[in-house]
């Protein structure tokens, strides 16, 4: 079948898309029910997640199979690169929206609230704040404890991942495995510390705008780290099975791009959510 590399690979009909749609339907429906205190929502949500996991497993398995069977020619590889690149761009915009919201609140909205003295006679715009109606003082998260350590962890993980990539270029299996394993470990430690930080925090999601932005932004970032870690684990697994070669390893590179992107988002979070 390798003679097909001249042609762009066109997959046979596939049911995975339909399964994806079922998974998202169950997840969305279940989530809506769950949020509105309909008890069975949890089960629907769970069913959706299970279908989703099955979908990821099955679909990726099929793609990996096609990839190692050599169906993908150079042009397909380029498509994957464009695809991943634009996907990351969409993620950039997702976080950009959040950061825009944060800047807007901090530079404009709080100022306007403090000037609306007819409604809030005593509010002074500061950051962090839980807003003019808050009754308790806000104990914000300082940057130089766990968050700084987490920054370091993510920065180092970027380096270990690059180390693994170099290993891949040289086809040095040991180096790849060490690099990847270290990266995964660092990602997991990061997640652990983040969970710890949440547990210890003196404020919650409903502590006004500070709590809202803090948890939503770091939460979404954490979700991305978790996904990245899982993807790295899959890559490690594939390396162990001997899947990639020095010039054919886009799966590895895609995950690496993603990981670096998540890193950069963290740097912004560190500066604008924790520090300034």
């Amino acid at each position: 079948m390798s003679q097909n590399t001249n042609n762009y690979y066109l997959p046979a009909p596939s049911l995975w898309p339909l399964i994806a749609s079922i998974a998202l339907f169950l997840m969305a429906g279940g989530f809506a029910m769950q949020m509105n205190d309909i008890a069975s929502g949890n089960y629907v949500l769970l069913a959706g997640i299970l279908v989703f996991v099955y979908l990821l497993y099955g679909w990726f398995k099929e793609v990996i199979k096609e990839s190692i069977s050599g169906f993908y020619n150079k042009q397909v590889d380029t498509s994957f690169r464009w695809g991943m690149g634009w996907f990351i761009f969409s993620e950039v915009m997702f976080f950009a929206g959040f950061f825009g919201a944060l800047f807007y609140i901090r530079t404009f909205a709080l100022d306007w609230i403090s000037k609306s003295t007819l409604v809030w006679p005593n509010f002074v715009a500061t950051w962090p704040t839980s807003g003019p109606a808050a009754t308790e003082a806000l104990e914000a998260m300082g940057p130089w404890g766990l968050p700084a350590i987490n920054t370091l962890i993510l920065l180092v993980s970027g380096a270990t991942l690059t180390y693994a990539h170099w290993g891949l270029m040289k086809e040095n299996r040991k180096q790849i495995i060490i690099g990847l394993a270290l990266t995964i470990a660092l990602g997991s430690i990061f997640l652990y510390l983040q969970a710890h930080e949440y547990a210890e925090a003196a404020f919650t999601m409903d502590s006004g705008i500070y709590g809202s932005t803090f948890y939503l932004f770091t939460g979404f970032h954490g979700l991305h780290v978790a996904m990245g870690t899982i993807m790295l684990a899959i890559i490690l697994f594939r390396i162990l099975k001997g899947h990639f070669s020095a010039h054919n390893h886009f799966g590895f590179e895609a995950v690496a791009w993603y990981w670096h992107f998540v890193d950069v988002v963290w740097l912004f979070l560190f500066v604008f959510v924790y520090w300034l």
């Binding site: 404009f108 909205a109 807003g131 003019p132 109606a133 409903d206 705008i209």
Partner: peptide
């Protein structure tokens, strides 16, 4: 419970 769009919590 977030307050992105609620002035009482510092949102807008």
């Amino acid at each position: 419970g977030t307050a992105f769009f609620d002035a009482a919590g510092g949102g807008d």
